[in-house]
Amino acid sequence: MKAFTYLRPGDGAEAVALLREHGPDARVIAGGQSLLLALKDRSARPPVLVSLRGVPELAGVRVEGDELVVGATTTYAQLTRAELPGWQATIAAVAGDLADRPVRTMGTIGGGLCAADPRYDVLTLVTGVGARLEVLSSAGRRVLTPAEFFAPGGGTRLEPGDVLTAIRFPGTAAWDGVVFEKFRTRVFDAALASVLCAVRLDPDGALAALQLTVGAAVPVPVVAVQTGSALVGTSAAAVDVDAVARDVVTEVLPGRGDTPALQYARELVSALTRRALVRALAHPRS
């Protein structure tokens, strides 16, 4: 670790002002669960850290109109305890089944998204359910889609001085069911592959929307748009799960397996897609 100056703004505006004042090398620190590791091995050497811990407006869960607004510094542990209705319960479930207890206690959903390691579950989550990300900078506030927030090759498109303030999840009516599946070698490891399946049904039981999103095995989560849209109108009972899994793999990880790791990633994506679909279609409205 190198020496740094630790600043504690009281609100978002002050945080942004401090970042602007200290220039591009200053970094935001939230729970520190990713950043501290980088500081310790000196792969990150920010002279100034702007802590978001004492900024009340950035933490907590609230409903605004249709949307569920989760403050960026809401910890995984807090999310786990939030009693969320309908499909949104999956948000709490995802937060409760990642990393280990100390990391969940300190780590924040915003930190996970800004660290933008594709193996982190919340990237797949926000992409898969179509959340929007609210960013504050000295130029003002903007709201981004995941595709705008994440860079296509990995990482985020945030500029120095940007602070992610909140994640705006769609309302309970957006989906009837959301299922998240992942595979990791050890319980506390980040995922090797993850798949999120979000479904909305017509009153007659046909698929009104199906969004299958693949994470971890790709630099940034990818929605299998073609596969999903091709199934719209199909009755849930008629979905050929194996065929869908094959289509997702072809769409998201095209080509033949050249490296064993890539071959394996395809196998995992296929397996996780099947699992997510089966669960999502079995009880779409629970």
């Binding site: 595979f183 070698t185 064993p260 790791a261 071959q263 394996y264 196998e267």
Partner: peptide
């Protein structure tokens, strides 16, 4: 015997 090797062997 990693999961990756196991699965590729099965396939």
């Amino acid at each position: 015997i990693t999961p990756q090797k196991m699965l590729l062997a099965l396939r």
